[in-house]
Nucleic acid binder design. Sequence first.
DNA 1: GTCCGTGCAAAACGTTTGCACGGAG
DNA 2: CTCCGTGCAAACGTTTTGCACGGAC
Lengths: 161, 161
Amino acid sequence: MILISIINLGEKMENKNFDSFIKSFTTYLKKAGLSNTIQKEAILKVLFEEAGHLNAEEIASIVKKKYKINIGIATVYRNLNFLENSNIVSAIVKDSSNTKSYEISIDGHHDHIICTKCGKVVEFFDEDIEKSQLEIAQSNGFTIESHNMTIYGICQECKGQ
Amino acid sequence: MILISIINLGEKMENKNFDSFIKSFTTYLKKAGLSNTIQKEAILKVLFEEAGHLNAEEIASIVKKKYKINIGIATVYRNLNFLENSNIVSAIVKDSSNTKSYEISIDGHHDHIICTKCGKVVEFFDEDIEKSQLEIAQSNGFTIESHNMTIYGICQECKGQ
DNA sequence: GTCCGTGCAAAACGTTTGCACGGAG
DNA sequence: CTCCGTGCAAACGTTTTGCACGGAC
């Protein structure tokens, strides 16, 4: 039941601006008996505005600089974990490092191509791959919860050099 | 050039027994100016025989118990990194923990479905997904180096409970 | 004798936890 | 007054690094 409202929140986020997103978010928190804070909002705003894939340290640093809010790294991790479990943000691991990078799920689900040279991340969504995954999981008796589809390679610019 | 011989080694490994595999491996090391050691062989043998997805600690522990070889965890990591870069072993991350598990690439490339409840790993290979990935990468100007396709879900047995 | 790979221990890294404080209801 | 979320610092688990030793050539 909680899961349903979480997923709905994720879906409702599409095509909205940040203010209305925060409104839904606060409502969601209240329903769960939790309260919104300036830190939670700042983390989300950074992910919303930077639109990149940021790790916890980067988020903390931007929050401090841009919004002059004192924020502890533990708070960032606590909130990112909460947001990830609520399907509001999603995490990817850029190869070679063991660091998780996060992005807001506002554009709906997509997968990633990452350049192993410059780190550039390109997003894509492929209906066929999604369908194949579902079939594979089903034929193996699995119910899909999530998946991670990341392609690593060299981008055009880096090939040119 | 180094990369080519590495990839060839990976391909040549299919359908061979461990002895001939080690022979190719030693040749590959010699070409690269490196030497084989009892530790390298033991790590590979464990991955070859156990056929599961083992993390560094597990590999070290099995090497010590089964082959009575003293091996330091640093050596295991050093060799696993080398083997991964040489495409001889590949790593997956079982969700929630941040630990890498390794498997030998002897059966050729495949992807994984992991049960988030019991940790069971099922391997699969899907021609259509592979093809789609190639097309997506190309249309974005990328040359694929590798990819990670992991589906997380609940397996039949865990659903039954 | 030189060099490379090792074991050990310490360090580094990303992340989580314990605790006391402060602000909201 | 209570409770929840926070900052800080310490702890944690995984992985990497520095160093000295020993064996292969």
